[in-house]
């Protein structure tokens, strides 16, 4: 019986990489679009209260100042943890910066990111200190209830 001799296959079989690369680029594009580097408005110590009506702002705030309020009522501004009274010099600085820019504290918005279990009185103390420095526009931030 004569056996068929198999011809030695010297050609290299290459996998078609095109679909994999296509998909990988699509994944990269997806993550690039969704990535959010702005961590300044986030704080791990603050769990925001839930709200049905709170909607993301339609317009960009001209001069936002974010104050986080922890469960214990400690204010965090620009990464510094201070009690309500400790906000006074920091807010004075902000007011001076605004004056330098020909603006007044009334042009700024104080964004209050309060912990859901913080005492309301602590938040009112912080609002009072801000009012004493001339700030009058407050934004209470809440998490959208899905």
């Amino acid at each position: 019986m004569r056996m068929r001799r198999k011809k030695a296959d010297s050609s290299i079989h290459e996998a078609d990489l095109t679909p994999m690369i296509d998909m990988t680029f699509q994944l990269i594009a997806f993550f690039m679009v969704l990535i959010n580097f702005s961590q300044s408005e986030q704080n791990d110590k603050v769990k925001l209260p839930l709200s049905d009506l709170a909607k993301p702002p339609q317009e960009v705030m001209e001069y936002p100042i974010t104050i986080h309020v922890t469960k214990a009522g400690i204010a965090i501004i620009g990464g510094r943890e201070v009690p309500a009274i400790g906000l006074k010099p920091l807010l004075q600085n902000e007011a001076n910066v605004l004056k330098f820019m020909d603006k007044s504290p009334t042009d700024a918005s104080i964004i209050i990111r309060g912990h859901r279990e913080a005492a309301t009185g602590k938040i009112q103390d912080i609002i009072k200190v801000c009012q004493e420095q001339g700030f009058d526009h407050f934004t209470l931030r809440a998490k959208e209830n899905l």
Partner: peptide, 15 residues
């Protein structure tokens, strides 16, 4: 990648 829930605002003008 971090999934962040949308945050919303309540504006209050309080002089």
């Amino acid at each position: 990648f971090k999934i962040v829930a949308q945050e919303g605002d309540f504006n209050i003008r309080m002089p």
